[in-house]
């Protein structure tokens, strides 16, 4: 599980801030706009979405309402100005930037940092 190239880099000195470890999950070109995929990083399922404008976001793949690992299979869209994904099971809508459920403000899914390095999609873990 995991790829050989994404081992965490050892640091010379302990940092006062939490260290982010970046994991390469795929090429940007492998992602179809508005069509999510699932990545498995350290045993955790992460839903990764490339938007129409090529921004990429990542949130936890488990739908908190059902417990099923399905959010990557939801429909990507917008509500007002927020980029969203809708759970395919019972249609609750989640903000892709914050991870908050827009239908139930007290519920949220984890969100992960994403960066693009040389056409590769990397997900950051604290």
């Amino acid at each position: 599980m995991g790829l050989a190239t994404d081992q965490p880099q050892p640091t010379m000195e302990p940092s006062p801030l939490p260290q982010t470890y970046w994991h390469v999950v795929c090429e940007l070109a492998e992602l179809t706009p508005e069509h999510g995929v699932t990545a498995l990083v350290r045993g955790i399922q992460i839903a990764v979405f490339r938007l129409y404008d090529d921004r990429v976001f990542a949130v936890g793949n488990i739908d908190p309402f059902s417990g099923a690992a399905v959010l990557s299979r939801g429909i990507v869209g917008t509500r007002g100005s927020a980029a969203t994904v809708t759970s395919p099971l019972h249609k609750q809508v989640f903000d892709l930037v914050t991870g908050h459920c827009l239908d139930h403000p007290q519920v949220s899914v984890p969100r992960y940092d994403v960066r693009l390095v040389n056409g590769k999609v990397e997900i950051g873990f604290p």
């Binding site: 908190p64 309402f65 417990g67 099923a68 019972h90 609750q92 139930h104 007290q106």
Partner: peptide, 21 residues
């Protein structure tokens, strides 16, 4: 087996849902 919802408000969530499975 399962799955187990992660949130206590799952009931509110599913009753609000537009279409059932």
């Amino acid at each position: 087996v399962g799955p187990v919802p992660l949130t206590v408000s799952s009931k509110a969530g599913s009753s609000q849902a537009g279409s059932a499975l």
